[in-house]
Write a protein that binds this DNA or RNA. Structure first.
Lengths: 194, 194
DNA sequence: GTCTATACGCTGATAGAC
DNA sequence: GTCTATCAGCGTATAGAC
């Protein structure tokens, strides 16, 4: 792995662990085993490197989500796969965490990868919920966009609860709770249609 | 309002806006209109002042939540009141935000108010869900603790979605989505019992 | 490409005068 | 109680040698 690459992956790790305001160029350089000069040769500065790192984390997260959401199966199975996939709740979400950073939120450019990730996710999940309704699997009274937002929020909020507790259990509870509510919104009939 | 008081409220505001790592003693002093000497006379340092500020924010948040959760009414009305109360989603949660701060999480003392707030909230909501089940208002299949965690997580996650989008709409969607799922888990019968 | 040198304001304090 | 002075180290670079 070359120097530029090590700088990006080190920045990804530190942004995940400490956020943007909590991460210094110096700390990134040290973790990457690179000097000052190297970093400023490959990147214009902290915002430039952070943006590169955030774009990559966003892409990776989206791929992980798509792995569950794009499976074969019923809507409940696909959403359940997304909710229940293996995570490390105490680490938080590497993309969602950026939404709490004041300097990321203050910059349209830095915020863009975060915005796009959640816009994509919300739409992807809403489509699956809509499919589930169309297939007769979920109650027609559900609003797909609202339900998708709630599902997405449960995951992000689960991280907050787990980190607050210092224990992953609240995250797992929140996921089970969401699955329980979705089960209550299932019609109990076998899905039909394409 | 005396100087010590102004320091605490300024710290509360800045911690809400910028988190712990993003907030400097100097910034707090400036907002409070106090000098260095004043701050170090009244508090031992940044962690001491921040802890005082966080304890107060936690107490205030709990009182706001109790205002909705402690109302008269059915379980759905009380939980709905909590979910739907007026908020400013783009500002985030002043207590939940601290869970994403690396230095708060690294310190048991600083994390304590955050931990206690969400432990209380989860238990409070779980009790109301359990009441709703006992009253025949909610399906007996729901797990009160899991459902309460999901409800709490929807609010915290809603903040993340709203800030990521730069728009309160995703928060409102998540809340409506959660209410829609709870409605699906309602029995449709009038609550009975005490 | 990477290194060292230099810069300047900020961070988080302590000391002592008033 | 509040003020000013002082401090070592960090944050975020830029310049120029190699």
């Amino acid at each position: 792995m070359d120097t530029a690459e090590r700088l990006v992956t080190s920045a990804q790790e530190l942004l995940w662990e400490r956020g943007y305001v909590g991460t210094s160029p110096k700390a990134i350089q040290e973790r990457a085993g690179a000097g000052q000069g190297s970093m400023y040769h490959h990147f214009r500065g902290k915002p430039d490197l952070a943006l590169t790192a955030m774009r990559r984390s966003a892409r990776e997260l989206r791929a992980q989500a798509e792995e569950q959401l794009g499976r074969e199966g019923t809507a409940l199975e696909r959403v359940g796969g997304y909710l229940g996939r293996e995570r490390e709740p105490l680490r938080g979400c590497r993309v969602g965490r950026m939404a709490m950073d004041p300097e990321v939120i203050a910059s349209d450019e830095l915020r863009a990868p975060v915005r796009e990730t959640f816009a994509w996710l919300a739409e992807r999940v809403a489509g699956i919920v809509a499919d589930g309704i169309a297939a007769g699997e979920l109650r027609p009274g559900l609003d797909p966009a609202d339900t998708a937002a709630a599902i997405t929020a449960v995951v992000q909020g689960g991280y907050v609860l787990a980190r607050a507790a210092g224990d992953r259990e609240p995250f797992d509870r929140a996921v089970r709770g969401a699955l329980g509510l979705l089960a209550a919104a299932a019609t109990g009939e076998a899905p039909h249609g394409a």
